[in-house]
Amino acid sequence: KWEEIAERLREEFNINPEEAREAVEKAGGNEEEARRIVKK
């Protein structure tokens, strides 16, 4: 599940997989929260 979210974030925000994974981890697997983290 987290991998899927990280993949979507990576494609959408054009970030590297590591950044995407970190955002999802910080968000506890919550996609909306992960998006907010990435946008900062």
Score class of each variant (00 low, 15 high):
1 K>D: 14
1 K>R: 09
1 K>T: 15
1 K>V: 08
1 K>G: 14
1 K>P: 12
1 K>A: 14
2 W>N: 07
2 W>L: 07
2 W>P: 06
2 W>D: 05
2 W>T: 06
2 W>M: 07
2 W>H: 06
2 W>R: 06
2 W>S: 05
2 W>I: 07
3 E>D: 12
3 E>F: 11
3 E>N: 12
3 E>G: 11
3 E>H: 15
3 E>I: 11
4 E>D: 14
4 E>N: 08
4 E>R: 08
4 E>L: 08
4 E>W: 06
4 E>T: 07
4 E>F: 04
4 E>S: 11
4 E>K: 10
4 E>I: 09
5 I>T: 05
5 I>C: 03
5 I>D: 00
5 I>K: 03
5 I>Q: 04
5 I>L: 14
5 I>E: 03
5 I>M: 11
5 I>Y: 04
6 A>G: 04
6 A>V: 13
6 A>K: 05
6 A>M: 11
6 A>E: 11
6 A>D: 02
6 A>Y: 07
6 A>S: 09
6 A>H: 04
6 A>I: 15
6 A>F: 08
6 A>R: 05
7 E>V: 08
7 E>L: 14
7 E>P: 01
7 E>R: 14
8 R>D: 04
8 R>I: 07
8 R>S: 05
8 R>V: 05
8 R>Q: 05
8 R>T: 04
8 R>L: 09
8 R>N: 05
8 R>A: 08
9 L>Q: 00
9 L>Y: 00
9 L>P: 00
9 L>S: 00
10 R>V: 14
10 R>L: 11
10 R>A: 15
10 R>Y: 08
10 R>G: 11
10 R>P: 02
10 R>H: 07
10 R>F: 06
10 R>C: 09
10 R>Q: 11
10 R>T: 13
11 E>R: 10
11 E>P: 05
11 E>N: 11
11 E>S: 08
11 E>H: 10
11 E>K: 14
11 E>D: 15
11 E>F: 08
11 E>T: 09
11 E>G: 07
12 E>G: 02
12 E>D: 15
12 E>Q: 04
12 E>Y: 04
12 E>V: 02
12 E>W: 02
12 E>M: 04
12 E>S: 03
12 E>A: 03
12 E>I: 03
12 E>T: 03
12 E>H: 05
12 E>F: 03
13 F>T: 10
13 F>M: 13
13 F>Q: 08
13 F>P: 06
13 F>G: 05
13 F>D: 08
13 F>H: 10
13 F>L: 14
13 F>I: 06
13 F>N: 10
14 N>G: 15
14 N>W: 06
14 N>T: 05
14 N>R: 03
14 N>A: 07
14 N>Y: 06
14 N>F: 10
14 N>M: 08
14 N>D: 13
15 I>C: 13
15 I>Y: 03
15 I>L: 10
15 I>F: 02
15 I>R: 03
15 I>K: 04
15 I>D: 07
15 I>E: 07
15 I>V: 12
16 N>T: 15
16 N>R: 06
16 N>H: 10
16 N>M: 11
16 N>F: 08
16 N>G: 14
17 P>N: 10
17 P>H: 15
17 P>V: 15
17 P>W: 15
17 P>Y: 15
17 P>L: 15
17 P>T: 09
17 P>Q: 14
17 P>M: 15
18 E>Q: 11
18 E>T: 10
18 E>G: 08
18 E>N: 11
18 E>A: 09
18 E>S: 11
18 E>F: 07
19 E>R: 05
19 E>I: 13
19 E>Q: 12
19 E>W: 09
19 E>H: 08
19 E>K: 07
19 E>N: 06
19 E>D: 13
19 E>F: 12
19 E>C: 13
20 A>P: 00
20 A>H: 00
20 A>M: 02
20 A>N: 02
20 A>L: 05
20 A>V: 04
20 A>C: 04
20 A>K: 01
20 A>Q: 01
20 A>I: 06
20 A>Y: 02
21 R>V: 11
21 R>N: 09
21 R>T: 08
21 R>S: 08
21 R>L: 14
21 R>W: 15
21 R>F: 13
21 R>M: 15
21 R>D: 06
21 R>Y: 14
22 E>P: 01
22 E>W: 06
22 E>H: 13
22 E>R: 14
22 E>A: 10
22 E>N: 12
22 E>I: 14
22 E>S: 13
22 E>Y: 05
22 E>K: 09
23 A>W: 03
23 A>L: 07
23 A>K: 01
23 A>P: 00
23 A>G: 03
23 A>F: 03
23 A>S: 05
23 A>V: 08
24 V>G: 01
24 V>F: 04
24 V>N: 00
24 V>T: 06
24 V>S: 02
24 V>D: 01
24 V>M: 06
24 V>Y: 03
25 E>D: 10
25 E>F: 05
25 E>T: 12
25 E>I: 15
25 E>R: 15
25 E>Q: 10
25 E>N: 10
25 E>W: 03
26 K>C: 06
26 K>D: 03
26 K>W: 05
26 K>N: 11
26 K>E: 14
26 K>M: 13
26 K>A: 13
26 K>I: 09
26 K>P: 02
26 K>S: 12
26 K>G: 06
27 A>F: 02
27 A>E: 01
27 A>P: 01
27 A>V: 04
27 A>N: 01
27 A>R: 00
27 A>D: 01
27 A>L: 01
27 A>S: 08
28 G>E: 10
28 G>P: 00
28 G>Y: 09
28 G>T: 06
28 G>F: 13
28 G>A: 12
28 G>S: 11
28 G>V: 09
28 G>Q: 12
28 G>W: 12
29 G>W: 04
29 G>N: 04
29 G>M: 03
29 G>H: 03
29 G>E: 02
29 G>F: 06
29 G>D: 02
29 G>Q: 03
29 G>V: 02
29 G>I: 02
29 G>Y: 06
29 G>P: 01
29 G>S: 02
29 G>R: 02
30 N>E: 06
30 N>F: 06
30 N>T: 04
30 N>V: 11
30 N>G: 04
30 N>I: 11
30 N>D: 13
30 N>H: 08
30 N>L: 08
30 N>M: 07
30 N>Y: 06
31 E>A: 10
31 E>Q: 07
31 E>R: 04
31 E>W: 14
31 E>C: 06
31 E>F: 14
31 E>P: 07
31 E>V: 09
31 E>I: 12
31 E>H: 11
32 E>H: 11
32 E>T: 10
32 E>W: 06
32 E>P: 08
32 E>D: 11
32 E>S: 11
33 E>A: 09
33 E>P: 01
33 E>R: 08
33 E>F: 03
33 E>I: 10
33 E>V: 09
33 E>Y: 02
33 E>D: 10
33 E>Q: 09
33 E>S: 07
34 A>K: 00
34 A>S: 04
34 A>I: 02
34 A>M: 01
34 A>G: 02
34 A>F: 00
34 A>E: 01
34 A>P: 00
34 A>Y: 00
34 A>W: 00
34 A>N: 02
34 A>Q: 01
35 R>M: 04
35 R>E: 04
35 R>I: 09
35 R>P: 02
35 R>K: 09
35 R>V: 07
35 R>N: 04
36 R>V: 09
36 R>Q: 10
36 R>I: 12
36 R>A: 11
36 R>T: 09
36 R>D: 11
36 R>H: 10
36 R>L: 10
36 R>P: 01
36 R>K: 13
37 I>L: 07
37 I>A: 09
37 I>N: 08
37 I>H: 08
37 I>V: 08
37 I>Y: 02
37 I>M: 06
37 I>P: 00
37 I>F: 01
37 I>Q: 08
37 I>W: 00
37 I>T: 06
37 I>R: 07
37 I>K: 05
38 V>E: 02
38 V>T: 04
38 V>G: 04
38 V>H: 03
38 V>N: 01
38 V>I: 15
38 V>F: 00
39 K>N: 13
39 K>D: 09
39 K>S: 14
39 K>W: 01
39 K>M: 11
39 K>H: 09
39 K>G: 13
39 K>Q: 14
39 K>P: 04
40 K>N: 15
40 K>E: 15
40 K>W: 00
40 K>H: 12
40 K>Q: 11
40 K>V: 13
40 K>G: 14
40 K>Y: 04
